[in-house]
């Protein structure tokens, strides 16, 4: 086909361009803005660790964790989503909306640490999926223990351990602690 054939074909066809604000529809597996499902997030900070551009920043506090994300800095490489152990992160299937100022699309999520059923202090959040990967079979006793804060969990383990050893050490330690 020579150039005349090319231009006459172009003339007959519909234009390939769009008039704003019409947009090209992205492919089904498009990598868009990252979303965090706080119900699944365990505030491990891997997303922060692998994020090259500093779009995701995870800051831990005593009773909660601040997860912030700025799409304006994001490179959409999807490493945070691939490596998220709890599958809390996902990417939108559509392009980000047009925005005017830097930081307009920034999102901040707060992951509140659940209260420990025993002492009431904040405990580490956990994720059902991770539990299933780590332990095929979860006993009710184990499920109860996972909800505890680290201190209480350690103490519970110690109790179980010392009970098995036979009480003496247990009383000794309690006396020490008191």
């Amino acid at each position: 086909m020579n150039i005349l054939g090319l231009i006459s074909r172009n003339f007959r066809r519909d234009p390939a361009t769009y008039r704003y604000p019409e947009r090209h529809v992205p492919a089904t597996r498009f990598r868009g803005i990252v979303r965090n499902d706080t119900a699944k997030c365990i505030a491990c900070g891997i997303c922060d660790h692998v994020c090259v551009s500093g779009a995701i920043v995870v800051v831990g506090h005593d009773d909660h964790c601040d997860w912030s994300y700025d799409p304006g800095r994001c490179t959409f490489c999807g490493r945070c989503v691939d490596l998220c152990p709890g599958e809390a992160l996902s990417q939108d299937g559509d392009r980000a909306p047009t925005y005017a100022r830097s930081g307009d699309l920034a999102q901040g999520e707060q992951i509140t640490y659940p209260a420990c059923p025993e002492c009431g202090l904040p405990a580490r959040p956990y994720n059902e999926r991770l539990l299933m990967i780590a332990h095929d079979d979860i006993s009710p006793e184990f499920r109860e223990r996972i909800k505890l804060c680290e201190r209480c969990r350690r103490r519970r383990s110690q109790t179980v351990l010392t009970k098995g050893l036979g009480g003496a050490a247990d009383t000794e330690r309690n006396a020490d602690g008191a």
Binding site: H49, V50, C51, V52, S53, T75, C77, R79, L83
Partner: peptide, 8 residues
Amino acid sequence: KNYTQDLA
């Protein structure tokens, strides 16, 4: 930066 970040 770490290797995962270097990749991006």
